[in-house]
Amino acid sequence: MITEKTITDLIYREADLLDTMQWQAWLDLFHPEARYWMPLEWQQQDPVLQPSLMYEDLLLLKVRVERLTGERTFSQKPKSRCHHLLQAPQIVACDTAAGVFKARTSYIYTETRGDMLERYSGWASHDFVEVGDALKIKLKRVDLVNFDAPFGNIQLFM
C-alpha cells in the first residue's frame, strides 16, 4: 500500500544515496522510461522545444554516473561531493486508484570540489509510478531559483 510516507521516505532516500555517492543504487530508483529534467525557463512547459540545462533519459544518466568514476575523468580529480538539505516534501498527489503520485520538495544543494563550494536553491518535483509494490521515479524535475544565472560546473545531481 503506497502512502504519503512511502513518497517522502523515497525522496529522503534519494537524497541520501546522492550524498553518499551510491550511484548505482540511485539509478535503480528510476523507471526505465524516466527523465531527469533541469529547465532553463520559469515555469517551463516543454523540455524538447525549449532550452533546458538537462533533459536526460536513463542511458544518459548512466553515462554521467560511469564518467564520474572514469580513470581519465580529469574534472573529477579531485572528486566532487554534494549535500542535500531538504524541506519536508509537499505531497501533490497520492492516488493509488489513478496511479498518480507527485511531490514537490524545496531544497538547498551544496556541491564542493577541492577548495570550491557552490550553493544552489530550488525545488525538486518528483512524479512516481507504481511498479509492483514499490514506487519508481518517472520524472525528476529540478527548478533552480536562479536558473538563468551563469554557473560554473555542476557535475553531480540536485
Binding site: 524538447v48 538537462m54 553515462v63 564518467r67 580529469f74 555542476i154
Partner: peptide, 29 residues
C-alpha cells in the same frame, strides 16, 4: 521541421551548459 530545433537545443545543452559533461572536460583544462 521542429526536429532540427530539437537537435540544436540538445547539442547546446550537451556541449555548452554548466551541466554538460563535455563542458566539464574543457573547463578543467
Amino acid at each position: 521541421p521542429d526536429k532540427l530545433y530539437e537537435r540544436a537545443l540538445m547539442y547546446n545543452r550537451f556541449i555548452n551548459a554548466p551541466t554538460s559533461i563535455v563542458g566539464h572536460d574543457d573547463m578543467e583544462m
